[in-house]
């Protein structure tokens, strides 16, 4: 009898440590975030919980009248709309090009393109800040040699967002290229051989065999990239602090600034929920589109 109870509890001892940590640091926090987003919790409330007041929808109403928040939503949408197609298109292009050959040279290039993905975002953001320096940076240096520039890169509200996007795209290509490459290698060779016999050229083969076979990977990469861009944080945090003139501030950075620099925990939690809702809605729309395409 005693042994059978022990046997029945045995599975739980394997999953318990991980489950406890996930519940404590992922699931319970969602509930806490929801509750405090309806309160005015700040630094005083942290010391004395009895001072925390329930404020209903006030935080949400205030957020939509906060010009900084509205601007950070606009910026985030800009990042998503420009960044997602760029990442998908460029990583797919690299993958198709690398798939052309299978000698040492091509596998070496695979390593080169993947390297930015594993390196620390803070470190590469520091490096790119230096490259973007209008006077001493490598980029204006190179532009000067061919008679262009100088550009202001991060210092001008008109170009700062693009500068951050260039860095983030550079960093994102490698991982997504690997996902596309794995899918490309799964396409049966015989399909191409048959097409070649029918006289189809490279472009026709790409359009009618390669791209349709990659439909799921393109969907997967689009969804994960979209979620990533909605949470865009490290690059603006290290490189611009959201400036100049709030032009690079993202919703994620807005949440951090309000939560940890101004200690408006309730207000920041409300902002984070709006971001969460936007991610869920955008993901659902993508799933809908994917379903529709499959139905055709």
């Amino acid at each position: 009898m005693g042994k059978s109870i022990r046997n029945r509890l045995m599975p739980y001892t394997f999953v318990l440590p991980a489950l406890l940590l996930l519940f404590l640091f992922s699931l319970i926090p969602i509930l806490i975030a929801l509750v405090i987003s309806f309160t005015g919790l700040d630094i005083t409330g942290l010391g004395n919980w009895s001072t925390v007041k329930f404020v209903g929808m006030d935080n949400f109403v205030k957020l939509f009248h906060d010009s900084q928040f509205l601007q950070s939503i606009g910026n985030t949408l800009y990042y998503v709309v420009i960044g997602v197609p760029l990442v998908v298109l460029l990583s797919l292009t690299v993958a198709i090009l690398i798939n052309f050959g299978n000698n040492k040279f091509f596998s070496f290039l695979r390593l080169i393109f993947y390297t930015p993905s594993i390196t620390n975002t803070v470190a590469v953001a520091v490096v790119w800040t230096y490259m973007y320096n209008p006077n001493m940076g490598l980029l204006n240096n190179m532009l000067g040699k061919i008679g262009l520039g100088p550009l202001q890169w991060l210092n001008d509200p008109a170009t700062a967002k693009i500068s951050l996007i260039i860095l983030a795209v550079w960093k994102a290509i490698g991982l997504n290229m690997l996902i596309f490459l794995a899918a490309l290698q799964g396409i049966p060779r015989s399909l191409y051989e048959a097409a070649e016999l029918d006289g189809a050229n490279w472009w026709e083969q790409t359009r009618h065999i390669t791209l349709p076979s990659l439909r799921f990977s393109i969907f997967f990469v689009s969804v994960t990239t979209l979620i990533g861009w909605f949470q865009f944080f490290d690059e603006p945090f290290v490189m611009t602090k959201g400036g100049p003139l709030n032009s690079t501030n993202s919703v994620a950075l807005f949440v951090y600034q309000n939560g940890f620099q101004n200690s408006n925990f309730g207000y920041a939690a409300a902002g984070s929920f709006i971001m969460f809702a936007a991610i869920i809605v955008a993901t659902l729309i993508q799933f809908k589109i994917q379903k529709k395409q499959q139905g055709e």
Binding site: L22, L27, I36, V255, A269, F273
Partner: peptide, 17 residues
């Protein structure tokens, strides 16, 4: 389901915990 939760939503409550 925890894979879907953005870090920015949990960062404040985790700090409080």
């Amino acid at each position: 389901s925890t894979m879907m939760i953005p870090g920015q939503v949990t960062m404040i409550p985790v700090y409080l915990i």
